[in-house]
Structure formats: C-alpha cells, structure tokens
Design a protein around this nucleic acid. Structure first.
Length: 415
DNA sequence: TCTGGGGTCCTAGGACCC
DNA sequence: TCTGGGGTCCTAGGACCC
C-alpha cells in the first residue's frame, strides 16, 4: 500500500502523463558523425551521390539551409552547395537501434519500436522504480548519450499521439512534458498537418471544408469529417483532435509483408534485363523470409514507368512459399501479363504478402545452380548496365562474379 | 539532374458461396 | 426469370509514415 502511494504521488508530480516517445535526432546523420568527427557542426546529408537519390537524413546545419529528408539530392545540393554527402550504412543504424531499444527495455518491458529510430514507452508501471516520467526521460537521454554518443529527444504525454507531438516539439536534444490537463491547450492550435495520418491529400480535403487547425476538426461534427475523408480515417482524426487516443503500447508486431524494390539510374525497357533484376529481388525477398521463418501466399509486383505512373499486379497461390525460385516464377508470370507497350521502367519491386510461419522449405532451392543457369544473362547485362545503376541498387553485380560494392548499404535493418 | 526504399492501412469492386 | 443480403477472398490503387 505504501508503495502504491509513492507511485501515485510521483505520477501526480508529472500530471498523468505516462507515455514517452523517444526519437533519435537526425539519426542516420548523427550515427555517421560518430565516425566522421571532422564533419560535426557542418551541413551533412546521408544519401548516395547519384542521379536519382534522395536524402535519408540531414544534420541540423543542413536543415537550417532547407535540406530535408526525402528531398532529391540534386535539390539539396542546389540549396546548400557546401553540403557533404555521406553514404548510408544501414547495418550500423540497425546496430545502434538495437542498443538504444535495449536501454529503453531496461526501464520498462512496454516498449513499442515504430521504426529504427523511435519508440513509445509506457512508463506508468516504472514510476516507483525510477521516479516520475520526467526523471525517466532524463535517465534515458543520459544513458543513450553516454553509451552511444547519440542525441535523442523525448516527448511525454497522456497518450501516444501527444507524446509523439511533444517529442517533435522537444527537438533537437530536448524533453517536453505535456500534462494531461494541458492536452487540449497543446493540441488545438496546431495546424491540420500535425495530426498523425494527415498528409498533403487529406489536408487539402479538410481545408476545402474551411478547416485549418486541430481545433477546427475537434469542434466539427464527426459526420462532416467522415464525409470528407472516409469513415475510418474521419472517426480516428476526430478522436485524436479531441485528445482521445486509447491505443496501447504494442510490444510485439507481426510482419505483414516482405519486399524489395529498386529504382534504376537509367530507365530500362529490355524484358530480359528486367526479368534478371526481378530474379535478384526475388532472391533477396526469399532470403529474408527464410531468415525470419516466414512464408507468404501473395506475390506482388510493382512497376513504375518513366512518367512516374505506378502499377501493381499480384497473384495469390494456395500454399505459402519462402522459396526464392517460386517467388521469382510467380513474379515473372505476373510481369509477363502486363502490357507495357514497350515503355521503359524506372522502378521494379517484388513483395510477398499474406505471411505466416514458414515450414522451412527454402533450402530446396539451390541458389548456385540457379545463378549458373543465368550466367549468360548476367554477363551481357553487366557489360551494359553494371556501372549505370545506383549504388545500393546495384543488383547486377553478380554473386559469384564480383564482390558486392557495399554489402552494408544493401542490407537494411532486418529486425 | 524531380520525386528512395522499407513498410502499413484503407477503399472499392468483383467473384463466389450460402 | 427483373433480382436479396451477408460474408470472405482477391485485386488494384492510393495515402501515409519513417
């Protein structure tokens, strides 16, 4: 009883805000700076320095010049000519990600990672052990900094959504606590785009109704919102705008699909070359499925043409597979049915959906044998396109013929 | 030098079954 | 023989997030 009282008292001290959102600051850029101390304080961006690349992460110095994530590298250079580009190393980010998630789990088992660089924590059960949420936030930030050298920001609120908004506001390298009683005062003045799930398209639909702020959504009849953006999204946004968000921390999540896609440095029209890339993508998808002991029933193919129009075609099979060869055959079958009318392809991708626990048949496929069969294709394609491809998308390097240029960059986080 | 790659969720129509 | 309704699965596309 005494213990519970202590818990209640410390909880009261932080006014009912028991959800933390921890967000690493400029994560990829910060990790790269650990190895490149001479670049600290300079505008840098993590991206390949090639034609169709975009910025993955930008240092705050680069951001102050207008450089943003997802911005084409060409545009970033125009905005900031002295920008230093650093190649991405996804395995490194994955490593640091695991390390910081481990620190979070020392505080509470109720950790929900939502990407490599952010997580929600429910600390309501950790108060007696560690003190109020503000103290926990300080502890986490101090440990992350001491053990990884990386900065992070923490938002604290009564709900996930408020905690997430608070961490955005806390950046860089800060903490913000929004007491439960202050939720609506914090939320309502924000612009529509602050609502999680409102992007450019939804924003425009809502603005057409004359709505500008979160308060405007909160004060509108829910029917008005659902009529504009659909019943599911409308009801959700209306609740968020009113500070209602009862989503719990989800400690475990089931993967729904596994895929790979690649954008070519130059568009490719040739059928055989495209099939060859398809094989490589299928192989990588199969590899990852087997690694995770998963198999899937739907094989989906994605194509993007030169004009950026994007189509997808899929086929569902009876028995789940994790066999790269099978994935390739299904993807190629779907591909063969598409009438491209000779159009060149900018992007091609393969994804396997409808996943379930695998039976482990993947070993049946002899990868080396398959590659020998395709050797002739590999040579001719290498000769023509090998050097034209983007760095991380250099699919035609050939397993047995040339070492991968940058194995690190080719393998995004697997967990 | 226009627009990456990994995903999730939602909608809507058609097939099919009862 | 002018015509229902519910449920599930599949497919394609779109919006969104990091």
């Amino acid at each position: 009883v005494a213990g519970r009282h202590v818990g209640e008292v410390v909880a009261a001290a932080d006014a009912g805000a028991g959800i933390l959102h921890v967000d690493m600051d400029a994560f990829y850029a910060s990790v790269e700076l650990l190895d490149r101390p001479e670049l600290v304080g300079k505008p840098i961006a993590v991206a390949h320095d090639s034609g169709r690349s975009v910025v993955s992460s930008a240092s705050y110095e680069a951001r102050s010049r207008g450089v943003r994530s997802a911005m084409p590298v060409s545009q970033a250079k125009r905005l900031c000519p002295e920008l230093t580009l650093v190649d991405p190393h996804f395995e490194k980010y994955s490593h640091y990600s695991k390390q910081v998630m481990g620190i979070f789990r020392d505080v509470t088992p109720l950790v929900e990672p939502i990407s490599v660089d952010e997580a929600f924590l429910d600390v309501r059960g950790a108060l007696r052990l560690f003190g109020p949420p503000r103290t926990i936030a300080a502890l986490i930030r101090q440990r992350v900094r001491a053990e990884t050298g990386l900065p992070c920001s923490v938002g604290i609120g009564a709900t996930k959504f408020i905690a997430k908004l608070a961490s955005q506001r806390a950046k860089p390298d800060g903490v913000l606590l929004v007491p439960a009683a202050a939720t609506l005062a914090f939320l309502h003045p924000l612009p529509l785009g602050a609502l999680w799930g409102v992007g450019p398209s939804t924003k425009e639909k809502l603005e057409r109704l004359g709505l500008r702020t979160v308060r405007d959504i909160a004060m509108s009849p829910v029917d008005l919102i659902t009529a504009a953006v659909g019943s599911s999204m409308g009801a959700h946004l209306h609740r968020l705008a009113n500070g209602v968000d009862d989503r719990e921390i989800q400690v475990t999540r089931v993967e729904k699909s596994v895929g790979h896609e690649t954008t070519f440095a130059e568009d490719i029209a040739d059928e055989r070359e495209l099939r060859r890339v398809l094989l490589d993508l299928s192989h990588r998808v199969g590899e990852r499925l087997r690694h995770h002991h998963l198999a899937g029933r739907t094989i989906a193919l994605k194509l993007r043409y030169s004009d950026f129009t994007t189509i997808s075609r899929s086929h569902t099979i009876t028995d789940p597979t994790d066999v790269s060869r099978r994935i390739y055959e299904e993807a190629a079958g779907v591909f063969a049915k598409i009438d491209r009318a000779g159009r060149a392809v900018r992007l091609i991708g393969v994804r396997v959906e409808q996943l379930e626990a695998a039976g482990g048949s993947g070993a049946l496929w002899n990868e080396d044998e398959e590659w020998e069969q395709l050797d002739g294709v590999t040579d001719s394609v290498n000769a023509r396109f090998g050097s034209a491809l983007l760095g991380p998308a250099s699919l035609l390097g050939g397993r047995s013929r040339a070492p991968r240029r940058d194995a690190d960059a080719r393998r995004p986080a697997e967990d």
